[in-house]
Amino acid sequence: MASITDNISEGLKYPFNDPKKLVTFGAFFAALNIIFFAITELSVKIVRVFAVTQGNTLAFKFSQIPQDNVYAIAILAIISFIISLIIMGYQYNVMKFSIDEKNDLPGFSNIVNILINGVKYFIVSLIYNIIPIVVLVCGVELMAVQNGDYIVSIISLILFIICNFLLIMGLANMIDSDKFTKAFDLREITDKIANLGWVRYVGIILFAVIVYVIIMICVGIILMIISTFIALAVNQAIILTAIISIIEGLFISPYISIFFNRVYGSIYRESIQ
């Protein structure tokens, strides 16, 4: 391959190989969007209870929260978590197909396998992000105590960036070897990145992010125009939001997610050559 940016254009073309699976994958995103929409709607009612009972004790506030809403939110949260696991599992499979240089999109027939892979993907992402999250929480606490102390928060931001750069390689390393512990073999991960070249590695990911930003701005403008027309037709904010989030979930989110994971996989493929 002549240039590493070829991986990016290959990643952009890849989802078009099987539009049916792309939209099937998009159905999960659309469901997730709708569930988040419902959760927001329900939690507004709970916040309203807190606002109305201002000045009362905390126990009284909690007693005033409508029970049905809490249960509904809990159930919706569990469902959305399971859907997220399926999405992550599919991303896992996309990365695996990318590392194996397969040109078709992974299927949905083995849903148990997808769920297991999703759990792996989720746990690895969580563990990589624990340190920055802890530092961030400390930073926010410190900022509350000592006004204007941003240094710890900035450190946590840098940690987030570093950890996520390592996370990409860690995930790919785990997926390739099919061993969970390989995701945390930092020596092997840094060796592989060094093999590719750190500048190239960071550059290719930055390039992917730039491409992502441009696509999202373009999509945003187009969706804005579409929503203007829908608003003229239905004149209801809630329907408008639902339609836009379904469109966004069905076509845009799956495309972007498959694009990124395809690129991550191909970066890993380049690094082990």
């Binding site: 940016t5 254009s9 952009l12 390039f207």
Partner: peptide, 9 residues
């Protein structure tokens, strides 16, 4: 798509 990527480059 290739054209777009070249433009971004």
């Amino acid at each position: 798509i290739d054209m777009f990527i070249d433009g971004v480059k």
